[in-house]
Design a protein around this nucleic acid. Structure first.
Length: 489
RNA sequence: CGGGGCGUAGCUUAGCCCGGUAGAGCGCCUGCUUCGGGAGCAGGAGGUCGCAGGUUCAAAUCCUGUCGCCCCGACCA
């Protein structure tokens, strides 16, 4: 075995490990255009599972899908002051079309608030037209300086929810509700525990009243902002004249929310669960749940094991079954590759379960079932598969979440620490540090400058420490908030 | 945009200092033997050495310019 078949290890160089893994597991590849990536079938398969689950959750919470255009008149962006300041520097702008200079330049959407609320303004006259609960699946472009596969690319895929409401409280409720949807998705599907909370002013969305986020801990103890939900207040409604007549006959501006998650989550999945052998995909998001590796010596054995494998695959994965009863099975029929090589192949790609079927198993009508997450191996009878696989898959899903949660907790610091100690931690292994903050943005900026750590959020009540910190970690002044500090992606 | 590094086969690279027939490993193709943890042997395909100039009898190698990429910073879902 030569060394170049092995991945760099996480301990050696987490960043190299991540890049190599994404490329070698065939999730994605670099494109000819700097900062852009090609999402390959394996990676897109994960994204599709994410989309499907989230889309169902959006529908179940009353939202409808629509599609708004890629191009936005440049003037739209300028209508909301903070918004233009935040996004203008990273916009791609179309200046020519059909060989002619455009009268008004077109911005390639970095996000769609402006175009969507301008349309909402056309459609809303009365309080009876509200709420509007829209979502769109789209690509957006942000001209990033430094890019990383999945984590930050110039073009990325996402969904953006946009809603309009009669009252502030209703919008706030929606903002919180969708943050909860994200959290549920990340924990139940990605097996990635998150801390939810409020962003400080310096980290909030350009143009929002308040931004909430889901923050997850990667295996290098850095935080990944995995999803955001914004209460936009009336800022965009005022900019785009989105108003309605109230029940009392007066005129009022609508209250908006927007919320989004992106293909960045695929990167989060990799950095939450991957190990030195490759990806570990969760049973709910993996394109293939069980890979069957036939083992044989002779042509006859090959025919017999593959026949058995296909019969099992057809039975478990039949399209005639409803989706939730279907198990996604793949038979690795490739010739000229030894079983061991196939094991490495599928382990690299993170397939949760492997079923080995060889000549010895044929007579017994059984196979060897191996878990990717724990490497645990046990024999299983073919006629037990239909009943047992869903249980094992759910067990893997649960175990992965528990393991990720344990890891996060092991690298979380809640006891009172000095700022000097904090600097040591951030310069070393890193951690999630809960500490008091006096509420001063200057303190936040100073810590960022000195340690590269930022306030990830002011955590929601359930994540706060049992005994609230009373003083600011940096200044020693009375603490206004308990905040979560970490270095982030 | 500042600081550093690198462009040689699909990938990783040797050769460059000191100019003289472009080499290896992996991968790929064919055949035989293999096959329960990354197979072995034999044969084979694949390169205008990033690009453009210059010096020279002769340039992957020296000089100039240029383009691109990577890493570290400032900006970020």
């Amino acid at each position: 075995m030569s060394d170049d078949k092995k991945l760099p290890t996480r301990a050696e160089n987490f960043s190299d490990w991540y890049n190599e893994l994404v490329l070698r597991s065939e999730l994605a590849d670099y494109s000819p255009v700097r900062g852009c990536m090609v999402i390959r079938p394996h990676g897109y398969g994960v994204w599709e599972r994410m989309q499907r689950a989230l889309d169902d959750m959006f529908k179940a919470t009353g939202h409808v899908n629509a599609y708004f255009p890629l191009f936005i008149p440049e003037s739209f962006l300028s209508k909301e002051a903070e918004h233009v300041e935040g996004f203008a520097p990273e916009c791609a702008v179309v200046t020519h079309g059909g060989g002619k200079l455009l009268e008004e330049r077109l911005v390639v959407r970095p996000t769609s608030e402006t175009i969507i609320y301008s349309m909402f303004a056309k459609w809303v006259q009365s309080y009876r037209d509200l709420p509007l609960l829209y979502n769109q699946w789209a690509n957006v472009v942000r001209w990033e300086m430094r890019t990383r596969l999945f984590l930050r690319t110039m073009e990325f895929l996402w969904q953006e929810g946009h809603t309009a409401h009669v009252t502030h409280d209703e919008a706030e409720h929606e903002t919180r509700k969708m943050l909860g949807v994200y959290r549920t998705f990340m924990e139940a599907y990605m097996a990635m525990p998150v801390i939810t909370g409020l962003k400080t002013d310096s980290e909030k969305f350009a143009g929002a009243l308040r931004t909430y986020s889901c923050e997850a801990m990667m295996q290098d103890n850095k935080a990944l902002q995995a999803g955001t939900s914004h209460n936009l207040g009336q800022n965009f409604a005022k900019a785009f004249d989105l108003k309605f007549q109230t029940e009392q006959g007066t005129e009022a501006f609508a209250w908006n929310t927007s919320w989004g998650v992106s293909t960045r989550m695929v990167g989060g999945l990799v950095m939450t669960h991957g190990d030195d052998a490759g990806l570990r995909l969760t049973p709910k998001l993996t394109p293939i749940q069980v890979v069957i590796v036939p083992i044989y010596k002779t042509d006859d054995e090959r025919a017999a094991t593959i026949e058995a494998a296909k019969r099992i695959s057809d039975e478990l994965g039949s399209f005639t079954r409803p989706d939730h009863e279907r198990i996604r099975v793949h038979v690795d029929e490739r010739v000229g590759i030894k079983p061991g090589a196939k094991y490495y192949h599928w382990e690299l790609r993170g397939i949760p379960l492997r079923l080995e079927i060889g000549p010895r198993d044929l007579a017994a009508a059984s196979g060897m079932l191996v878990r990717r997450d724990t490497r645990e191996k046990r024999p299983i009878a073919w006629d037990a598969l239909r009943a047992e696989l869903p249980i094992v898959l759910q067990q893997i899903q649960d175990d992965m979440l528990a393991a990720a949660r344990a890891r996060m907790e092991a690298h979380t610091i809640r006891e009172r620490i000095s700022y000097d100690r904090f600097k040591e931690i951030m310069a070393g292994d890193g951690a999630f540090v809960y500490a008091g903050w006096n509420g001063d943005p200057a303190v936040e900026a100073r810590v960022k400058e000195e340690t590269k750590a930022t306030i990830r959020c002011i955590p929601d009540a359930e994540f706060r420490s049992q005994v609230a910190p009373t003083t600011c970690m940096v200044t020693g002044e009375p603490a206004k908030f308990e905040v979560l500090w970490a270095r982030s992606y």
